[in-house]
């Protein structure tokens, strides 16, 4: 473990995680809205938002899958020190972190069980940027319609078809975060 792995966490965990959770809650409850979260300085290639999301949500009771470039020794050390989340394969993960192409195929992630749909994975998808245009989103949390530059639509349409099963997604870019729960209907426009 490098000394760098010890740095970049919350300096005031209870307050910073509360503020960040509130933003994540708003992002997940209002799909398509882009929120700003801060407080952590994770090592590259993780974005600030992805690092903060891990600090807020992951702990020794949640299995984490690191995909693609995110699965490197620096990130593994940082995650181990700051969250204690055990690393797992994609099929077993509660949280999965990586770029959209690294997470593919997303059909391998847990979608919950018919009697326990909450036992499903949450994907944290690293993006270059988030913008409020692109595929059209409708469903719970959205008054009329919202738009978000999703990396693709087919996978999210297939995921919505599984409802109430399915995975939930957080998109991160820099210090920005957006949410896409399984309940959202996605249409390419």
């Amino acid at each position: 473990m490098t000394a760098h792995a010890l740095e970049g966490g919350f300096t005031e965990a209870s307050v910073q995680s509360a503020r960040a959770f509130r933003e994540i809650l708003e992002a997940m409850a209002r799909p398509g809205t882009i929120r700003k979260i801060a407080g952590a300085q994770p090592p590259a290639p993780l974005s600030i938002a992805a690092g903060v999301a891990l600090l807020v949500l992951a702990d020794p009771t949640t299995r984490l899958h690191l995909a693609g470039d995110a699965d490197c020794p620096v990130v593994r050390d940082w995650v181990a020190f700051h969250t204690g989340a055990p690393l797992a394969s994609a099929e077993d993960a509660d949280f999965a972190l990586g770029t959209w192409s690294a997470l593919h195929p997303v059909s391998r992630f847990r979608i919950g069980q018919p009697d326990y749909p909450d036992r499903s994975a949450t994907l944290i998808v690293e993006c270059d940027r988030l913008a409020p245009h692109g595929p059209c989103l409708t469903g719970p949390g959205i008054e009329t319609a919202a738009w978000l530059n999703l990396p693709e639509t087919a996978a999210f349409r297939a995921n919505r078809a599984l409802f109430p099963l399915g995975f939930d997604t957080l998109f991160t870019a820099g210090d920005r975060i957006a949410g896409l729960p399984r309940s959202t209907r996605v249409e390419a426009i």
Binding site: L57, P117, D118, T122, D168
Partner: peptide, 11 residues
């Protein structure tokens, strides 16, 4: 917080 987010995802 994890439970709340799953609750939000499956209203």
């Amino acid at each position: 917080r994890r439970a709340i987010l799953k609750g939000i995802a499956v209203p």
